[in-house]
Every structure is written in C-alpha cells, then in structure tokens.
Design a protein around this nucleic acid. Structure first.
Length: 291
DNA sequence: CATTGTTAAGGG
DNA sequence: CCCTTAACA
C-alpha cells in the first residue's frame, strides 16, 4: 500500500454533546436555540455547549449567559448539575458510556474525550471487502457522506450527491484477492461509519459527525468539514488542495502556542506553505521530536 | 476570583 | 518518575 495510505482511521465527534444530552432529557429543548451552562451567579454562568440554532445567533462556547441572551433573547439554558458546589459532569459521562458501548460493537475505539473517539478501521475494512460483491457500494448506503475535493473542477458547494457519484465512479472494480485501492478502503470505512452512526442514534438518540481518512490528524480535520450530522471522506489526493488555504491553527495540536511560533518562525500562513519544509528543517526549529 | 476540568506531552 | 505546561472541550 502507498505511503500514507496504510490505514483507514475514523474520528467520530458528537454534535454539541452536552446540549443533546439535555435535549433528550427535556424534549422541549429540541430544535431550539439553547445552551448548557455551568454556575449561575457570575453573569448568568458560563456556556460550555451551544445548539446549532443558537450558534446561528452568534452564541459561542465560553460566553457568559447574560451576554448570549443579548444576542439571542429567547435562548433556553440548561444547567450543569452541581455537587459540593462544583460543576459535576457525571450525567454527561454516563451518556458518553452509552455511546462508547454502541460504537465498540463495530471496532476497537480510542476514546479521545467525553464526546469523541478515534478508531482504526483497517482490519474491519479488509474483512468487509472480502464478503462484498460488486456494486454493493451505492450512493444510497452513504446517505450522509461527503467526499472532500469532489466534485472536481466545481466551485459551487452543496453538491454532495454529485461529488459522491463522481467519486464512486472513479473507484476501481472490486478486486478479488489482491490489494484493493486506498479509495475503495476509505469508502468501505465510510460505509461502516454510516452504520455505526445510525446505530448510535437508534440506541442513544444522539447524533454525531465523523471524518474518515488515513490517520488521526486527517480524520479529525475531515470531521469538521461537514457538521452537524454528516461525515466526510478525506482522500490523500485531496489534501494538497485543502491545505493550500488551510490556516495552520486548524490542525489538531497546532491551535495554540506551537502553531503561533511556527507561523512566526517560518513566516508561513497555511498548511500548504508549511509542507514545503522538510522534517529535518522542522526538527532544527522546533526540536527533533516536535518537528 | 470570574471558566473549569481533563488529558497528554515534554522537561527536569 | 513526577511536575509543569499546553491543548482542547
């Protein structure tokens, strides 16, 4: 298998998880602008999760509830439970366990936080490919999947279906026995993740987004490209174009001081520029390990 | 006081 | 190996 395409890795991220947990408990909160906030005394409490309806009004995480109400007067507020005067996240951790249990039926998962998990689907994909017939990968089975970079030569967005069809048409026939293409493997990975996400919603009521690519950093990046309640395949061949206009801070672990120092030291703006430097050069500037 | 909590990596 | 720092949710 080509370098960089050895594995199929997915990242599943629950959409505004704490909000969904509160909405399941209190259905009146569903489909409304609402937030989850902790504490109440200082400026109404601080917001730790925001529904997509509230985001449309400009409400964000870390905002004070009093400030958010100015942006969105009919904002509903759920409160984090407290014990010993401290915010207690037990309620959300228990909901997280429900999700993890369902996901674990499909693959070995690596819990990255209370609301997201990585999984290496390489083995599951190989298994699935063995039992698959030709024409078994249909657009219908990938109903919430986007392919980053497809359709090609198209500037207009919102062309999910056309991009998916073009991508599927570009895949080789199912090769029986021999190694299958990286594109085929990502697609079967996406099929598994579609099934996993449907199972999570069926058994917990919670929706999520996902990214499918060849490593954790790319899977995480892909996941953020189409939210909420959607999943995105990021083929390696689409990475260069994506990186051309991608701020360095968008890459996991480069959102803080290291990212800032890279931008300053190398006088670069986006990931496309950064990729022009060799690993040896990056090692010189940022330490052998970090580089 | 004014976000808090959790996790992981790096340095001593 | 522990402690501090960084990153993220």
């Amino acid at each position: 298998m080509d370098y960089g395409k050895e594995r199929v890795v997915a990242l599943v991220d629950m959409d505004c998880f704490y909000v969904q947990v509160e909405q399941r408990l209190s259905p009146a909160l569903k489909n409304t602008p609402c937030v989850v906030a902790q504490y109440k005394t200082w400026k109404g409490g601080s917001i730790i999760a925001v529904s997509y309806e509230a985001r449309a009004h400009g409400v964000t995480r870390n905002m004070w509830v009093d400030d958010a109400k100015k942006l969105c007067p009919d904002l509903q507020v759920a409160r984090v439970r407290e014990s010993h005067g401290k915010a207690d996240l037990t309620f959300y951790r228990e909901a997280s366990v429900e999700v993890i249990e369902v996901m674990s039926r499909f693959a070995v998962i690596e819990r990255a936080s209370i609301d997201e998990a990585y999984m290496d689907l390489t083995a599951a994909v190989q298994q699935r490919l063995k039992s698959m017939n030709d024409n078994e990968i249909e657009s219908l089975l990938l109903k919430t999947t986007y392919i980053q970079g497809y359709p090609q030569n198209s500037t207009e967005q919102a062309q999910r279906s056309r991009g998916l069809k073009q991508w599927l048409a570009s895949l080789p026939e199912l090769p029986l026995g021999e190694q299958s293409s990286a594109g085929l493997q990502l697609t079967v990975g996406a099929l598994i993740v579609e099934e996993m996400r449907a199972a999570v919603e069926k058994h917990t009521g919670f929706r999520c987004s996902a990214g499918i690519s060849h490593n954790k950093v790319l899977a995480k990046l892909a996941c953020g490209l189409n939210k909420p309640n959607r999943q995105t395949i990021l083929p390696l061949d689409s990475v260069a174009e994506l990186f051309n206009s991608l701020p360095i801070s968008k890459i996991r672990n480069l959102g803080g001081k290291l990212g800032s120092s890279i931008i300053e030291t190398l006088a670069v703006e986006n990931m496309g520029d950064l990729c022009k430097f060799s690993q040896a050069q990056l090692g010189q500037h940022f330490g052998e390990k970090t580089g």
